[in-house]
Design a protein around this nucleic acid. Structure first.
Lengths: 223, 223
DNA sequence: TACTGACATCTCAGTATCTGGGACGCAAGG
DNA sequence: CCTTGCGTCCCAGATACTGAGATGTCAGTA
């Protein structure tokens, strides 16, 4: 997913930013997540703070800064864990939280079933915006047209906006279905999408009928 | 204003980002605005594109990319010029458009009276978020508390949210008053603040009574 | 109370990366 | 056809960045 741009310092700085966005907040955690040396991680984090891409809490923990579209959404990750766990228990399917990152969507929090037939999406995985119900939601609620090669149309996205949730059947992966709903932050800004996903055998070709209510409730709780 | 962070490549990359945000779109304009060599500007801009901080239009023009909070707002600047000119003519005061940049607000477009007693804020000037009606608006509509040393309180900001506009009297500068209203972008995301400002003698201690209507209309036109 | 371990911050010699002058390609205008 | 301006790319040389290690701080424990 993450590419190298030919400017090494920028590549490393972006590793640090992405680590913060996917839940690392201490310097040690950033160092671990990025694979950089501690001195380099520290120097880059402080420089990113000067330029308002990162900010620091009173206890020294790193957060997304005001220049980034993800600013102010770190607390969302902390609140997501119990909500996704409950959604998993209520629906009997794996639950995830996705956030947009350019033309990808990244799984930033997850509650997996742990055993049995299930769809597992590990935290940190980046998926394209061309397939899946979370992609539909992230596009529909930010007035973005479907990208080239998308498995859905603008008409589908209009329907998603009307209904408030999206479903997918064998879009990202054969035999997998999913339901997603949008999560909003301050001043109704879209910050992510909550999803459940699982085998088509259980979820049927109309997974929304089974689980849209629970997914909407979880999304509302995080909004 | 812009500081150096100790990481030179990052400092230069931010110069490029800021140049795009304040209206430079061609490579030549970026080179001019940043003072970097053409090869360096090009290499950094392409690297920023890879990491989604910049994006390119079909004709090669550079825009803010999806990682930035200013993504999608470049067209705003182009539409602002005639709207601010009209606001200036209708109110008889200088008009500006401010955008937040961390703990500063930057004047990104302006229509000045040109002569006579007036408040002039040149494009590019960065002002603190502790004073002025634009600061109140930018804080109030992004659920941000007043910074330390602010000339207003959280209570003032609540009132601004209720009323939809803010005014200031001798906050940023003695003898100057102003009125501001929020500008929203896609999915109701706050993207800036429209203002008129001028001498206290003309605007009185209640500048909102005189000009809130016109400022709100201009802000709505840009939203 | 003193020690230990983990973490954050800082330094600076060595080196890997970045720089920018200039070459090249393209397109528009005279 | 020639000139000019712009965007893209190359690569020798310069310098900014790296990271091992020193230092400081603090919480936990013996």
């Amino acid at each position: 997913m993450e590419q190298t741009s030919g400017v090494g310092v920028l590549d490393k700085a972006v590793l640090v930013l992405d680590a913060v966005q996917t839940g690392a907040h201490s310097l040690a955690a950033l160092t671990q997540a990025t694979g950089l040396s501690r001195a380099t991680t520290h120097r880059l984090a402080v420089a990113l703070e000067v330029h308002q891409f990162l900010t620091r809490e009173g206890d020294g923990r790193w957060r997304s800064g005001p220049r980034l579209v993800t600013s102010g959404t770190d607390a969302l990750l902390e609140r997501a864990a119990p909500v996704l766990a409950r959604l998993r228990d209520v629906t009997g399917e794996s639950a995830q939280l996705y956030r947009r990152q350019g033309d990808l969507r990244v799984c930033v929090a997850a509650a997996d079933l742990g055993s049995g037939l299930r769809d597992t999406v590990p935290v940190g995985v980046a998926l394209p915006m061309t397939a899946g119900s979370a992609a539909q939601v992230l596009l529909a609620f930010s007035a973005t047209e479907p990208p080239d090669g998308a498995a859905f149309t603008e008409r589908t996205l209009a329907e998603v906006r009307r209904r408030g949730w999206a479903h997918s059947v064998a879009e990202r992966e054969q035999g997998v279905a999913s339901v997603s709903a949008p999560v909003f932050g301050a001043d109704n800004r879209l910050v992510g999408a909550v999803s459940v996903s699982g085998p088509l055998k259980r979820l049927t070709r109309q997974p929304g009928r089974l689980h849209a209510g629970a997914v909407l409730a979880a999304a509302k709780e995080l909004s």
